[in-house]
Each structure stands twice: as structure tokens, then as C-alpha cells.
């Protein structure tokens, strides 16, 4: 059962002695439903990863970083949660994120979706859906509403951030341009 796009799984493991880019590894790519599950069933769930690790699943050819030309002017819908929420919600929300990515749940806006990232961190874990520059706010909000519905989250739990704001922030938190 072919997927609409070919996807790549990336793994990031924080090693402070190396450059950020060197800690990011392309694991593999897949483009069928069967290969997706073969991979998913074979790797650790996010809740089993150590702090400082990330998984990223992006359309093949797009690197999971702000610097990629497809990401540069885009943004992300972000859900973040404290450690208490981790064991009940993290793995479920990551799987739902992957299913809406590979199933292309965003209809005509699916083309604008670049990928998704889960960050395992000491204070708060994060899951984000990344998208390229959008032609309208309505398109950004459409993706956010569909995504929130996929995750089955209550109101005001996901926020949209522009990558350029995140990339240039100093110590201040990144503002949410929209909250759903």
C-alpha cells in the first residue's frame, strides 16, 4: 500500500562534544504502509528515549532543521507537556502525529506539511508538526484544526510558532502566533 510521499526517519542524540548537525542521523526512508509499521514496531517508543534525543519524520529530501529552504520561512504547530504527562500521552500523541502525516490527513494543505519532530527533554517534552511558508493564515489554521482533532486534545493546547522567531530568540520564550 504505497504512501503518497516517501518519508525519512531521523534520530538526534545530544552529544555536546560534537556539532549539532553531527548528532543528527538519517535512519531510513519508507514509502509504504507496511514499511512504516516494520520501522515503527522495531524502534523504541519516544518515552523510552533518553533526555536530549529527538525523532524526526520528514518528507524525503527535506532536512529536519530550520535552515532547509522548505522550512526556513515556515513554522510549527507545537504541543508541549510536562514529565507527568509523558507516559500516558507522549507515545500516543507521537503515533497519532505520524498517522496523520503519512495518511496525508490535511487534504489540499498536505503539500505544505514538511514533517514532525518529537523532542525528549528533562523539563518538557515537545511534539511539533512542521510546515513550510503558507500562503494564508486560513491555511495555517486549517492544518492546526485538523491536527488538533487527530490528537484529540482539549482547547488551547497547541500553539503555532514561526521558525524565524524561534531561530532568533535570545532568552525570551517564542511567541505563539495562534493558539487552538
Amino acid at each position: 500500500h504505497p504512501l503518497n510521499s516517501r518519508w525519512a526517519l531521523w534520530f538526534f542524540k545530544n552529544d555536546r562534544s560534537r556539532a549539532w548537525r553531527d548528532n543528527l542521523q538519517l535512519v531510513t526512508t519508507f514509502d509504504t504502509v507496511e514499511d512504516f509499521w516494520a520501522l515503527y514496531n522495531h524502534i523504541q517508543l519516544p518515552s523510552k528515549l533518553s533526555s536530549g534525543c529527538d525523532y524526526a519524520v520528514f518528507k524525503d529530501g527535506i532536512q529536519p532543521m530550520w535552515e532547509d529552504s522548505r522550512n526556513k520561512k515556515g513554522g510549527r504547530w507545537l504541543v508541549s507537556f510536562s514529565r507527568q504527562g509523558r507516559y500516558s500521552e507522549l507515545d500516543r500523541l507521537w503515533l497519532e502525529t505520524l498517522l496523520c502525516l503519512i495518511g496525508e490527513s490535511f487534504e489540499e494543505q498536505s503539500r505544505a506539511v514538511c514533517g514532525a519532530v518529537v523532542n525528549i527533554r528533562t523539563k518538557r517534552d515537545k511534539i511539533a508538526l512542521w510546515m513550510r511558508e503558507m500562503e494564508s493564515q486560513a491555511a495555517v489554521l486549517h492544518i492546526g484544526r485538523v491536527y488538533k482533532e487527530c490528537l484529540d486534545l482539549p482547547t488551547k493546547t497547541i500553539g503555532y510558532q514561526v521558525h524565524a522567531d524561534a531561530a532568533t530568540r535570545s532568552n525570551s520564550p517564542v511567541k505563539h502566533k495562534f493558539v487552538l
Binding site: 500500500h1 509499521w37 498517522l99 495518511g103 496525508e104 498536505s110
Partner: peptide, 20 residues
Amino acid sequence: GKKQYDREFLLDFQFMPACI
């Protein structure tokens, strides 16, 4: 055409043996 799959369809394949 564009291939869209809903979550139930995708989940049906999770534990399906690869060669059938």
C-alpha cells in the same frame, strides 16, 4: 491521484505479517 489513508486503515496493518 493523491493517496489519503485514515488512521483506522493504517492501524489495521500494524501487526499484519509482511508476506501474505
